[in-house]
């Protein structure tokens, strides 16, 4: 079959994209899967180790702790993010003065660099000089070791991460809320529904797809927790804020265990996929 220029054009047009995907997505994924069966420190040649990396993963207590730390973070971060974002979206969806100002204000932290925000919060959460503890002291409340206590540090980071990202989820919820036809609320008004009942029986079920999207995005975003503990606590105290991604990073770029790091990454990706699949099934039901 003769290839005419008309037939070739689409292939030429998608070639740059295919090249990009091949070089920056397919190759790294394939290479990291290969790596999981090897030991490699970048300098020496790769050495085939079979399933040793996987066997090591199962016995690596620090990895499981980092995973548990991440889960602890998610357990606070996701519900907090949904509740705060939904409450603020509901507030901003109403007829309030200065709506545009508030919408912009809540979104501002999203566009500020994560590093800048983290450093700012590190200052705010400082035990002695931090603004938050100063306010607490002023109110005769004992100071809280936000980043110094293994019991508190991860929750303080979850609080900060929520503040940083909530603007994005407010926008998503606002879009969801605005797609609910006004007539449903009017019908509920006539039926005698209170504001809370309208929220419970009309808004929540109607924005279910948005809630699912926010849960999935928060889950994926939360699983990739890195900048905040890396800058604020370096994973401490006592590895209590060591996130899974941070541990994978350490294995790769501090200890040069590229093969093991790839194994952790691969396992972690499968875990995220499984969690999102469960969430999807739950929401569909």
């Amino acid at each position: 079959m003769k290839l005419t220029s008309k037939r070739l054009t689409p292939y030429i047009l998608i070639t740059p994209y295919l090249l990009h995907v091949a070089v920056f997505v397919l190759f790294p994924v394939a290479f990291s899967i290969v790596l999981t069966f090897h030991s490699w420190n970048i300098i020496s040649p790769m050495k085939y180790v079979g399933l040793d990396n996987y066997a090591h993963l199962l016995k690596d207590r620090l990895f499981w702790q980092s995973l548990w730390n991440t889960v602890r973070f998610l357990l606070v971060h996701i519900p907090l993010q949904i509740v705060v974002a939904l409450a603020l979206a509901e507030f901003l969806n109403g007829p309030i003065r200065g709506r545009a100002f508030f919408r912009a204000s809540f979104f501002l932290p999203v566009i500020v660099s994560g590093v800048v925000v983290t450093i700012l919060w590190q200052q705010l959460l400082g035990f002695n000089a931090g603004m938050i503890n100063k306010v607490l002291t002023g109110m005769s409340i004992p100071k809280v070791p936000w980043l110094e206590s293994p019991d508190v540090a991860m929750y303080a980071i979850a609080l900060m991460a929520t503040w940083k990202n909530v603007g994005l989820y407010i926008i998503l919820f606002l879009v969801g809320l605005q797609t609910v036809p006004m007539q449903y609320y009017e019908a509920a008004d006539l039926e005698g529904a209170t504001r809370w009942q309208k929220f419970r029986y009309v808004t929540l079920p109607m924005i279910n797809p948005t809630i699912f999207m926010v849960v999935v995005l928060s889950t994926i975003g939360g699983f990739s927790l890195f900048i905040e503990p890396y800058i604020m606590t370096e994973g401490g105290p006592l590895n209590s804020t060591l996130s899974a991604v941070m541990y994978i990073y350490r294995q790769a770029f501090q200890y040069y265990h590229m093969g093991y790091s790839a194994t952790l990454g691969f396992f972690f990706a499968l875990l995220i996929l499984a969690v999102v699949a469960v969430q999807k099934k739950y929401v569909e039901e």
Binding site: P181, Q183, Y184, A187, V202
Partner: peptide, 8 residues
């Protein structure tokens, strides 16, 4: 209502 406003 014109569009019935039945909760889907």
């Amino acid at each position: 209502f014109q569009n019935y406003a039945l909760y889907p």
